[in-house]
Amino acid sequence: MYEPKIIGFLCNWCSYAAADLAGTSRIQYPSNMRAIRVMCSSRVDPEHVLRAFVNGADGVLIAGCHPGDCHYISGNYKTERKYVLLREMLEQFGIDPRRLRLEWCSSAEGGKFAQVVTEMTEELKTLGPIELGAGD
């Protein structure tokens, strides 16, 4: 059975903490995601996302603090704008924009984090493995 591979960029203060909380709460979710911790979601560069796809990721998750909750005051607003533009461009590249996901998870939302990974895994299963480039 096809198992999608997901890279998750998690901000240190909220979403990484949410992922930890999912653990302490023993909430079970699929094992398809590998996390890369960054200090703030705004550190995630669209180049990282493309690099992830090129390196075999079927999906990329960016997770940060809720708007207004950013540990660095306003980083996540930038993340959101970058995400909206990048999604549009991915579509032009023929990559289903559902392969890139931005989610806000507070450090109290272990359940939400688990749910996001679960949903994303399911969705990627229906999308199938990522196809890039091709052609001669």
């Binding site: 705004s42 560069d45 669209p46 180049e47 996302v49 493309l50 690099r51 930038k78 704008r81 970058k82 909206v84 533009l85 990048l86 461009m89």
Partner: peptide, 13 residues
Amino acid sequence: ADQGAKLVSAIAS
């Protein structure tokens, strides 16, 4: 490495 991605980043920021 990818001019378009970096421009997306800078301009959306």
